[in-house]
Amino acid sequence: MKRILDNIINDSRDSANTGKVADYIPELAKANPQALGICVTTLDGKEYYAGDYDTKFTIQSISKVITLMVAILENGAEYVFSKVGMEPTELAFNSITNLETSPQKRPLNPMINAGAIAVTSLLNGKTPEDKINTILNLTRKICENDSITINEEVYRSEKATGNRNRALAYYMKSNGIFDGDIEEILDVYFKACSMEVTCRDLARIGAMLANDGVLISGERIVSRDICRIIKTIMVTCGMYDASGKFAVHIGIPAKSGVGGGIMAAVPRRMGIGLVGPALDSKGNSSGGLKALELLSREFDLSIF
C-alpha cells in the first residue's frame, strides 16, 4: 500500500501544478501550492501515508459535515431539513442566486455556504463559544486527536473578508430561514472552518462514516441513519458544482474544502484524507482530485 500511495502522489503532482491557492481569504494564500499528501485509514485501524501527509491546514468546508452531524444529533433530521434542502447545485458554493431562485428561498443543500450557515444557526448552546466547542470536541473525538484547535490567523482573516457570507446570511434571515444574531452565527461558522487538521484527521472522519458511525475503537458516535444521510449528501453535493463529474470518475462519498483538503469515505472499507492547497476552478484540490481518482481506479473503490 505504501508503495502504491507513493506512486499515486508522484503521478498527481503535475495536476497539483495546474491549480492555485485560494486568495480571497488572505491567510489561505500563504499555503504551499506544491504540497500534496494522503492518508488512508482502514476500518481495522491500519493507516498508510504518502507525500506531505503531515502538512497542517484548515478544514474549511469539510467542517460542514461535522456541523451537520451536530445539528441532526441536537434537532433531528426532519427539523434540520425543513430549513435546508438536499438537492445538488450547478452554481458555485458561495452563490446567492441559489437562494433567489429557490421557491422556498432556502439553501439547496448543507454543503454549500448558505446551507452550512443555516445549519450553524440551528446549533444548541447559550453562547457562540458553547456551539464552537461542541463542534471542536466532536471533531477531536472522531479524529482521536485532542490537539486539534482553531487557527486564529485564518479565523480572523475569514471574519475580516467574509462579506459574501454575510450577504447570504442576511438574505436568509430576511426570508425567515433562521433567527438569531448574524454575526454570532457567522463567528461559529468561521471558527469551524478554521479548525486546523492533517490528512490523518480527515481519514479518521472518513473511516468513521465508512463504518456507519463507529470509531476504530468500536465506540459509536452517530447512528447508521445519520451516516447514510451525510454520505448520500456528500455524493450529490460534497464537491460543489463538480459533484456529478466526481461521482462519474471517482464515485466515492467525499467533501472538499478550500484549504486544499478532501475527506472521503469508502463504505465498509476505508477513510481517506488528502491535502493539496492548489485548487481548480470549482474550489477543489487539483492534485487531491487526481490522487483520489488514481486510488479509486487502483482499488476499484467506486460505489457505483
Score class of each variant (00 low, 15 high):
Val21His: 07
Ser217Tyr: 09
Cys227Ala: 08
Asn17Phe: 12
Met239Leu: 15
Ile182Trp: 01
Arg166Phe: 10
Ser82Tyr: 05
Asn7His: 13
Ala31Arg: 08
Ala16Thr: 12
Gly271Asn: 03
Ile62Leu: 05
Glu153Ile: 13
Asn32Cys: 08
Cys193Leu: 06
Asn10Ser: 15
Val80Pro: 10
Glu100Ala: 13
Ser281Trp: 09
Arg220Pro: 03
Leu186Gly: 05
Asp241Gln: 14
Asp241Glu: 15
Lys231Trp: 08
Thr42Cys: 03
Val70Ala: 04
Ile250Cys: 01
Val235Phe: 12
Gly259Ile: 11
Gly206Phe: 08
Asn145Ala: 10
Glu129Trp: 10
Asn75Gln: 04
Gln60Met: 15
Ile221Val: 15
Lys245Ile: 13
Tyr155Trp: 14
Leu279Arg: 04
Ala114Trp: 06
Leu108Asp: 02
Leu36Ser: 07
Thr198Tyr: 10
Cys199Ser: 13
Glu47Met: 13
Ala264Leu: 06
Val119Met: 07
Ile272Val: 14
Cys143His: 02
Met1Gly: 08
Gly51Asp: 06
Asp44Arg: 14
Leu168Ala: 05
Arg164Gly: 07
Gln104Lys: 15
Val188Gln: 02
Ala207Leu: 00
Val21Arg: 05
Ile303Asn: 01
Thr139Val: 05
Leu138Trp: 01
Ser281Arg: 14
Gly260Met: 09
Ala203Tyr: 08
Met172Val: 09
Asn284Cys: 13
